[in-house]
């Protein structure tokens, strides 16, 4: 489909959707949101781009093969779960690091293994959905 309106609109929307997906990913720990929804929103962004400009340019914009993105995401989530062994906890126990906190008052910038896990979920969803969408698009 070649439509100048769609192509111009798509560029704007893709950028907005990708930023929104990151926002969803990051706010997920205290409010509704998270890696799954973020990944879906990002996938919607690339899907719109693929509809407007074709899967070839969508694949170029993505840079990596969607299935490989999903595999890396699975690796991230596994790593987040396996990290707990360093602290001697059970697998998938959340590990927190508060950057800039004084004596453990939990007020610094919170970085956690849960964020890594969610990032993994984000990548898995993005990669898996896009590989199906691209496969269907290219078949039609």
């Amino acid at each position: 489909m070649k439509s100048i309106i769609l192509i111009v609109g798509a560029r704007l929307q893709v950028a907005l959707l990708l930023i929104f997906s990151l926002y969803m990913l990051l706010r997920g720990h205290n409010d509704p949101g998270g890696g799954f929804i973020g990944g879906l929103i990002a996938a919607i962004g690339f899907t719109i781009y693929a509809i407007a400009c074709g899967t070839v340019s969508a694949r170029e914009a993505l840079r990596f093969e969607p299935a490989s993105i999903a595999a890396v995401g699975l690796g991230c989530s596994l790593l987040a779960g396996a990290m707990a062994i360093i602290w001697g906890d059970a697998p998938f126990t959340g590990q927190w690091l508060f950057i800039g906190a004084e004596d453990g008052d939990k007020k610094g910038l919170p970085i956690s293994s849960i964020l890594l896990f969610d990032l993994g979920v984000y990548l898995v969803v993005l990669g898996a959905v896009l590989s199906i969408v691209f496969a269907l698009e290219e078949n039609i």
Binding site: F36, A128, I132, A135, L136, N139
Partner: peptide, 20 residues
Amino acid sequence: IVIGFGLFAFALVLTLRAYQ
């Protein structure tokens, strides 16, 4: 729902392949 989504997406692709 998530799992179902994955399975049915696969089944849909399979149906398309079967038709082709």
